[in-house]
């Protein structure tokens, strides 16, 4: 749950660990960018065999500044309501921070998060048009760095506190 959304046509996979009072303690999240400003997400907890839904809409996309709204943890089959949120973020090249608020059940919570692009490569597998191959052919160090950053994994930690 960060204010950045996947670019149109991009699919990302996340592994999440979180307090069980928020949602599934261990779950996988698949995010698919539908447009330049919106994505849908599916959360899957294999232990509990439950699946939640989420979505995000980018209201402001002037990087490094982002503002998004959406909802997460919606389980229509378990009759659990979606948790709407609003988030603003500063999305730097390597270091990223976000603040926001989320309505979960009967209470409101603040959101404070930090995300970092991995300094090491790996974790990426191109099934599409071969970004890695393009990267290797590029002779520009600056371009290589830009592409390398875009394909590196991102680690984020978010703290939700009851308001």
């Amino acid at each position: 749950m960060t204010p950045d959304s996947q670019p149109e046509g991009d699919l990302s996979l996340s592994f999440q660990i979180q307090d069980k009072r928020i949602a599934n303690p261990y779950q996988l999240q698949a995010e698919l960018g539908l447009t330049e400003w919106g994505e849908v997400a599916v959360f899957r907890d294999f232990a509990a065999r439950r699946m939640d839904l989420g979505t995000e809409i980018g209201l402001l996309r002037k990087e490094p500044y982002l503002l998004s709204i959406g909802f997460i943890n919606w389980s229509p089959h378990l009759d659990e309501d979606p948790q709407p949120f609003i988030e603003a973020g500063y999305w730097g090249e390597h270091h990223r921070v976000c603040v926001g608020a989320i309505h979960a059940g009967y209470k409101n919570e603040s959101i404070l998060g930090y995300a970092m692009i991995s300094m090491r490569g790996g974790g990426y597998r191109s099934i599409g048009k071969g970004v890695l191959k393009t990267h290797r052919r590029s002779g520009s160090p600056a371009t290589s760095r830009a592409i390398s950053n875009s394909i590196r994994p991102c680690t984020s930690v978010i703290v939700r506190t009851t308001i």
Partner: peptide, 30 residues
């Protein structure tokens, strides 16, 4: 009460056209 969410994300599929260098093919190279 505070709760922590830890997330590790990587891209499975996609092609970011905005950062792909212009000269990605032999076209125009003489």
């Amino acid at each position: 009460m505070g709760y922590i969410v830890f997330t590790y994300t990587f891209r499975l599929w996609g092609d970011r056209k905005d950062i792909v260098p212009v000269a990605t093919s032999a076209t125009g190279v003489k």
